[in-house]
Design a binder for these strands. Structure first.
Lengths: 218, 218
DNA sequence: TAGATTGTTAATCGATTAACAATC
DNA sequence: TAGATTGTTAATCGATTAACAATC
């Protein structure tokens, strides 16, 4: 009998595909589909069946020969892999439009992400609530972190302040940062940083537009 | 003399790194740095010097042996590659928090992205302006598209409406969609779709948190 | 059982890194 | 000129796809 290595390193590429599998399986589940083969799923998702099977088998055999995958089971297993079976308390630093947009996005809660507070420097925002969650002033931040069990901070502030605030967060126990500031954060390597660089995304779009035009001109 | 192939296909991986090069070069430029070697840049960006040279040489030789790269020149060249030397008119569909956040993000304009209007179904938003740009009602959309030269539409609406609205956009000449709805869009292949799936990003963050905890427990 | 489809190994493809001659 | 550093080829590494035996 072979015991599998517990900590085979899963590649970034695989991880980045899991949320998409999760999304499609959720839709199938809503549609009342009970089972699906890698072949059928591959057609829906426009990826190869091989890739689906290969990806899933990084985490164990969720399927059954001759049958395929049970949608409900696979959905739940991928959820567990992604850590969505646990709750994660988070705060938002920067209660501008983007911070408020994230705060209003209630469906994060369904995946276990519980917003505990927003913070801002703008005194006009003091005490207002978004979905019942209070906006606090930045000078309350450190205290709040010490009295609440917060895992994640979303940074929706200008890049000029981002590096400084990130340091404060890390010094006060935050272990994961969801970074929307247009800058890279260099932090201790046990701190997880997931960046969403909107302008980078827009630039890739722009590249593809230019590209298409070049091809046309030929 | 060898003439280079005009349309060598550049890989997605390379393209996705260009905005980051652009960002770092912009910072160097602001800091008054005149030239930089791939070696020094690699240290700043935490990538290999080989990768930088390899990436850049997909587009031509921007450097000089024994000297390195002229920051200003390289910045401008990457800008051209990304299409940032041209202006791109765009609209935002969905003037909720996220739509307004994008509308307020003035720095897109510096890269040539000009917001011409927002659209929403909520009558309360009719006629209001964000940075001087009017919010219009969805029933004005088709007319607006025919009377204005709009290249890009940002979709910041719930996924339930996204597919339907995307079809309308494409039928009326939109050639690129910046998609924030939590769904994939299947559109004709000459339509460019760049998706920002915020919940996918948060799930990757969550995976990394779980992963770190597993490692600890050992 | 026969057919379907997985899990997994092997083959291929592509991307990254290393090395170094060319040259500023 | 000598030193530095690119542009580019070759080597390595990793990810994707193909193939098929195992098995439900």
């Amino acid at each position: 009998m072979v015991v599998k290595l517990e900590h085979r390193k899963i590649s970034r590429a695989v991880i980045s595909r899991l949320p998409r599998y999760y999304r499609f399986l959720g839709e199938l589940l809503d549609a009342g589909v009970e089972r699906i083969s890698s072949g059928d799923l591959s057609k829906k998702m426009h990826v190869t069946a091989s890739q689906i099977r290969q990806d899933l088998n990084n985490f164990g055999g969720f399927g059954q020969q001759g049958y395929g995958y049970n949608v409900k089971h696979l959905y739940s297993e991928i959820g567990k892999i992604l850590g969505l079976d646990k709750t994660h308390n988070f705060i938002i630093i920067g209660a501008g439009n983007l911070g408020q947009a994230l705060a209003n996005y209630a469906s994060f809660e369904k995946s276990g992400f519980i917003l505990k507070s927003l913070f801002d420097v703008n005194p006009r925002l003091e005490g207002i609530s978004i979905r019942g969650i209070r906006v606090r002033m930045m000078d309350e931040l450190v205290d709040f972190l010490h009295n609440n069990d917060i895992e994640i901070a979303a940074l929706t502030i200008p890049k000029s302040k981002a590096v400084e605030v990130a340091d404060i967060l890390v010094k006060n126990g935050i272990k994961a940062i969801w970074n929307f500031a247009h800058t890279d954060l260099t932090l201790p390597k046990d701190v997880i940083v997931e960046s969403v660089h909107l302008s980078d995304s827009l630039m890739q779009l722009s590249y593809n537009i230019s590209q298409r035009e070049n091809v046309r001109k030929k």
